[in-house]
Amino acid sequence: MGVLSWALDRFANATADPTIPAQDGASARSFMDLLRGVMAGSRALADDQGGAIVTAGTGNAYAVSTASGVTQLRAGLSLLIQIDRTNTDAATLNVDGTGPKPWRDGDGVDFANGALPPKRFVRVTWDASRNTWISDVLSLLAFDFAFRAWMASLPTAPDGLGPGKPWKQGDAVSGYALNITGTNT
């Protein structure tokens, strides 16, 4: 149990997490232990939200283990994970042994083959109404495609462009540098 199991009702938190002694009538001696427990829980949440989680599993069945310890899927539960392999079909995600659930894009559609490339960081959010994990990775792919198309369309020299106009240096193999006339020419 951890931060993700804590309740919005403060009184329910007296026994929500056994690693944090927050019961009424507790000894003053347990106060520092309580603070250290809150610190450890906060660190676990920071890791889970900061990209420390890497997927495992096989094929298109992805699995992750959080530092916080997810025991129940609830609306709004969100994690930042790093993909360990490319998907080749529809994907599932199993968080802390809660069971494999469909993992889909922001529109609720199964990911296309290759939409989850390795080393990519992806935010996953539990959508209780659709009983699925949602990631809006397609918007990242669309942005990447649009940016590459825009860069390809830019001129390669600033001659005659006027002030404040973009142009590129380099090539598609070694990479491009984006320049703005009047600032770095």
Rank of each mutant, 00 (worst) to 15 (best):
N94K: 06
V95D: 01
V95Q: 02
D96E: 12
D96Q: 10
T98V: 07
T98F: 01
T98N: 15
P100M: 01
W103N: 10
W103V: 06
D105G: 15
D107I: 13
D107N: 15
G108M: 11
F111V: 04
F111E: 01
A112D: 12
N113G: 08
L116T: 04
L116A: 09
K119F: 14
R120K: 12
R120W: 03
F121D: 01
F121T: 05
V124C: 05
V124N: 14
T125P: 09
T125I: 06
D127A: 11
R130P: 14
N131P: 06
N131A: 15
I134C: 12
S135Q: 00
V137H: 03
V137R: 03
L138T: 07
S139D: 10
F143P: 06
F143H: 14
D144T: 05
A146S: 10
A146Q: 07
F147C: 03
R148C: 03
R148S: 12
R148G: 01
A152Q: 12
A152S: 07
S153H: 04
S153I: 11
P155N: 04
P155L: 09
P155K: 03
T156G: 15
D159L: 06
D159T: 15
D159C: 02
D159P: 10
L161K: 04
P163R: 07
G164K: 15
P166F: 00
G170E: 09
D171I: 07
D171E: 08
A172Q: 08
V173C: 02
I180L: 15
T181V: 00
N184P: 00
T185G: 13
